[in-house]
Simulated scan of single mutants.
Amino acid sequence: MIHPEQVADMLRPITSTLLPTATSVPGPVPTVIPTPTEYQTVGEAGRRTLWVTFALMVLSSGLFALLSWNVPTSKRLFHVITTLITIVASLSYFAMATGHATTYNCSTVWDHHKHVPDTSHQVCRQVFWGRYVDWALTTPLLLLDLCLLAGVDGAHTLMAVVADVIMVLSGLFAALGEEGKTAQKWGWYTIGCISYLFVIWHVALHGGRTVSAKGRGVSRLFTGLALFTLLLWTAYPIVWGIADGARKASVDTEIMIYTVLDFLAKPVFGFWLLLSHRAMPETNIDLGGYWSHGLATEGRIRIGEED
Rank of each mutant, 00 (worst) to 15 (best):
P117E: 14
W272F: 06
V29H: 06
M256V: 12
Y39D: 01
A175V: 02
S92M: 10
V42S: 00
G288F: 15
L91S: 09
L77K: 12
T103L: 05
F222N: 02
T82D: 15
L144P: 13
P13A: 04
D262C: 08
I81V: 15
K214Q: 07
W233Y: 07
Y132C: 11
R278E: 14
T182N: 09
L11I: 11
I166Y: 01
H113K: 04
V29T: 10
Q126Y: 06
E178Y: 00
E305S: 13
G294V: 06
I87G: 05
E298C: 13
C124S: 03
S24N: 12
L205A: 04
A246R: 12
G154H: 05
Y93V: 00
S276G: 09
L149S: 02
R209E: 04
L11W: 05
V203F: 01
S61N: 11
A296H: 14
F198H: 02
L146Y: 04
T98Q: 01
W186D: 03
V161R: 01
I81C: 10
R76K: 15
R302E: 14
T21A: 10
A65H: 10
E179D: 02
I200M: 09
R131V: 10
T297P: 03
A155F: 13
G304N: 08
T103V: 10
V162M: 06
V58R: 07
T139N: 09
I194W: 04
G288A: 13
G288W: 13
L169W: 14
Y258A: 11
S61V: 04
D111Q: 14
G217E: 12
M167W: 00
G180D: 02
W135I: 09
Y93T: 07
V58L: 14
S24F: 03
N70C: 03
T223E: 05
F64D: 06
T119F: 12
I242C: 02
F128M: 07
T119D: 08
I257T: 08
A213K: 12
V123L: 14
E38G: 10
L77V: 15
Q126W: 08
A45V: 08
L227Y: 14
M256R: 06
N284M: 13
H206K: 09
K181G: 00
T37S: 15
L63C: 09
G46M: 01
A8C: 08
C106K: 04
H115E: 11
W69E: 06
W186S: 02
H113R: 04
A235V: 03
G187F: 02
G215Q: 02
L172I: 08
I191Y: 03
T190K: 03
K185L: 08
L273G: 00
R300L: 12
T23N: 07
A101F: 14
H277V: 06
G224T: 03
R47P: 00
L197G: 14
T53R: 00
A265W: 01
Q122I: 05
W51A: 11
G299F: 04
V251C: 01
L59T: 08
G177V: 02
A265T: 07
I194Q: 04
A296F: 15
W69D: 08
T41N: 10
W291D: 09
K214Y: 03
W201T: 11
Q122H: 11
F64Y: 13
G289P: 13
D262M: 07
G99I: 03
D145N: 15
K75W: 09
T17W: 11
V165T: 11
